[in-house]
Design a protein around this nucleic acid. Structure first.
Length: 422
RNA sequence: GGAAGCGUGCCUGAGUGGUUGAAAGGGCUUGCUUGGAGAGCAAGUGUGUCGGAAACGGCACCAGAGGUUCGAAUCCUCUCGCUUCCGCCA
């Protein structure tokens, strides 16, 4: 959420930003509601001031009937104005929540992911001297996954991992946590459900039409789509001392996505599923540090996937593809046989104070001044996507798969290769 | 899940309808005192929002949302959270 005062002062800039980010919201309507809100507020406050004076006066008067009558009048007026004020405020906030964050000046301008800009590339897409398999074929062949029975138990796009893929998942988690611990991050596991107000604070719309979020009936809880939600909510309604920043957290959680409306983007296998595990980085920092830390998060992701040894590139996400909260976003995209191209494996965003304002998280300077802090998030490893990248890039002509060297220490007997069971 | 109790400022804690934005103590800040520290003394010490160049002033806030009343931290309802007891359970 942006500061309404900022929007008042930079109306044209905000409108232009909405257009570039391909988000439709009526800024004129927003400002009109804001004006109305302020007028109503002034009226209400004047009445309340009169009321407060009356309350004091009434105590020193013998015959209270006249003043009580006046008090009743004031009350009636307030009873009319207050609901109107509330309604106006709600309308205003509804629009305000839809206004996207400002955009980093270097973010490429563009309408869709086609205009994202590649800024770095590591490794080369593998040259196979055989017909490479998709991860789905590999996993079926090596008995690493069971979609059919998951469909029976939970529905389509759910899966059981099985055999070595389970071990790989745990190895990836261990690998990611050790890496982040070395870099001074504090480890967490988080709840997999969160209150709707946390979801919307972080920037997710839990119960809208096109929501990606599963909600629990008869409760205000939803299954989290990412640990960004629980880690962003972690410090909500708090003020953090400047000297404690930055707070660097790494969290494991399960992630649940309805993938509603994703039919046009059909993909088979593990690429787009209803549930997966993820190790997520989340940072709270002072505003002046967020750009630098965003680069750090990107570089950590690069380091992780370089060590995992899969070919990938880094893209700078263009305005039309940024989503609401992000000021700037980088994705890592690995080479995938199943996509015959690049597929997203991580994403890191600088959301500046957009989430912090909604979640009411401030920092207190040593001077005593308070302001909203900045939040950032980034994927360390998203297991399903990482499995795709590893299996498809490490596959051998005989159908086996080499285990990336950095993962072997977490595998039983330092397993080097996943082979077909006898 | 059942029962009971509780939720006040940075902390402890008073306050059960009216001059309480809120006693008292602690903490913290500043000044005095001291060779220095401590003790002591004095003053100050919330947030949000609106108006204002500022000084300052209005309004709101005693978990949150509603209600009763001329008037609510105080009464009523609901929600959230915490504590204790019982039940259940990985």
């Amino acid at each position: 959420m942006l500061d309404i005062k900022f929007i008042r002062k930079h109306k044209e800039e905000i409108k232009k930003n909405c257009v570039q980010r391909n988000i439709h919201c009526d800024i004129d309507e927003l400002l009109a509601l804001d004006e109305k809100r302020k007028i109503l507020l002034a009226e209400i406050e004047n009445l309340q001031a009169e009321k407060n004076k009356l309350i004091k006066a009434i105590q020193n008067v013998a015959d209270k009937t006249e003043l009580i009558a006046r008090g009743k009048e004031i009350k009636e007026k307030l009873d009319k104005l207050e609901p109107e004020f509330k309604k106006t405020l709600e309308k205003q906030e509804k629009i305000l929540r839809e206004v996207p964050n400002l955009t980093h000046p270097d973010s490429p301008i563009g309408k869709s992911d086609k205009e994202n800009k590649e800024i770095e590339r590591y490794g080369k897409p593998p040259q196979f001297d055989f017909t490479p398999r998709t991860h789905e074929e590999i996993m079926n062949n090596l008995d690493l996954i069971d979609f059919e029975r998951a469909a029976k138990v939970s529905g389509s796009k759910f899966y059981y991992l099985k055999n070595e893929s389970v071990l790989l998942e745990m190895a990836l988690i261990q690998f990611a946590f050790r890496k982040l611990l070395e870099k001074g991050f504090t480890p967490f596991t988080t709840p997999d459900l969160a209150r709707d107000k946390v979801l919307s604070g972080v920037g997710f719309n839990p119960r809208g039409k096109e929501t990606q979020i599963y909600s629990v009936e008869n409760s205000d809880l939803s299954l989290v789509g990412t640990a960004e939600i629980t880690m962003g909510g972690y410090h909500m309604e708090e003020t953090i001392l400047e000297e404690k920043l930055p707070l660097k957290y790494v969290a494991f959680s399960h992630c649940f996505r309805t993938e509603a409306g994703s039919y046009g983007r059909h993909s088979s296998g593990l690429y787009r599923v209803h549930q997966f595990s993820k190790v997520e980085m989340f940072v709270y920092c002072a505003p002046e540090d967020s750009e630098k830390i965003h680069e750090e998060l990107k570089n950590i992701e690069v380091e992780i996937f370089q060590e995992l040894g899969v070919p990938f590139r880094v893209v700078d996400i263009c305005t039309g593809d940024l989503g609401g909260p992000a000021y700037r976003k980088y994705d890592l995209e690995a080479w995938m046989v199943s996509k015959n191209g690049w597929g997203e494996i991580t994403s890191t965003s600088n959301t500046t104070d957009y989430q912090a304002r909604r979640l009411n998280i401030k920092l207190k300077r040593s001077s005593g001044e308070k302001e909203y802090l900045h939040t950032l998030n980034g994927t360390a490893i998203s297991i399903a996507r990482a499995l795709i990248a590893i299996l498809e890039n490490y596959q051998q002509s005989d159908g086996s798969v080499i285990v990336p060297e950095v993962l072997r220490e977490w595998m039983p007997n330092k397993m080097e290769k996943i082979e077909r069971k006898k």
